[in-house]
Nucleic acid binder design. Sequence first.
DNA 1: GTACTTGCAAAGCCTTTGCTTTTCA
DNA 2: TGAAAAGCAAAGGCTTTGCAAGTAC
Lengths: 148, 148
Amino acid sequence: MKRTLEQLCTDIGLRMTRQRRTIIQAIENASDHPDAWSIYLRAGKADPQICLSTVYRTLRIFQNAGILAGHRFKDGLHRFERDSDERHGHLIDRTTGKIIEFRDREIERLQSAIAEHHGYRLVGYRLELIATPLTLKETAKGREDRVG
Amino acid sequence: MKRTLEQLCTDIGLRMTRQRRTIIQAIENASDHPDAWSIYLRAGKADPQICLSTVYRTLRIFQNAGILAGHRFKDGLHRFERDSDERHGHLIDRTTGKIIEFRDREIERLQSAIAEHHGYRLVGYRLELIATPLTLKETAKGREDRVG
DNA sequence: GTACTTGCAAAGCCTTTGCTTTTCA
DNA sequence: TGAAAAGCAAAGGCTTTGCAAGTAC
């Protein structure tokens, strides 16, 4: 069964403090990709004492330990999410900023092939699809492959 | 025939100053994805007077105008490149940081399909493959792939 | 001539760090 | 109790901005 963040932490010898538990809670409860400030705010509800630099430090430690994955979308903020293996893409709604996660094996297969073609072995990827909602008309018309 | 950056600028009513010409030169000559500081250094060789904030301002204006494409790789810096249509991926050598551009229609086709599956129309994408060089053994094992 | 641009310096924003105090194991 | 972590404030790195002076059109 899947290990909790807390388990992963102690696994690698990190001390489990009140603050870390709070931060972990905030992350496990998140369904989005929060940045340090959001996590600070969310954690602050459970523990108003918590300090922003603790949040930053903790996130960085988790990221270096491979427990958390860090992203940078266009806004430039460090954003975090639970899965540390970079094995999914993000579909970004350009009109609202909403982010949908997806995974597609076929794309991953092609990616590996491309990397190999260039003499590399794929170890991770970042895929962001920037998209706008389909209009009713487009939806009705059905698929017409295009980029742009 | 393809328009030069300078033409694109005047097209949209931007004044063509010495500094802008210098910055444009630096960008057109670049084969990589320079950040503001690199562009400042390169432009500085042609015009030592040029000011970093002018570089920043100019890049931002160009980006907003859709003349330049901005990226954020893991280092978090704003990086720029000429093509403003986001129609290619970046293969990133994790060991050296080297960036190789590529384009693959099949992946793009899949991307469109995924977007549509979620009710969206793809308007652009960002694809970064993080990879490590193949070892000799792996290369031999693999098929007749050439190293690009 | 006038509106747009630059240079400069200062401020801003996000993030990291030094140091002392606190806490965990 | 010793080492790791937190809190706080200050510094750091990259980027933006206000304003006076300069320049393209």
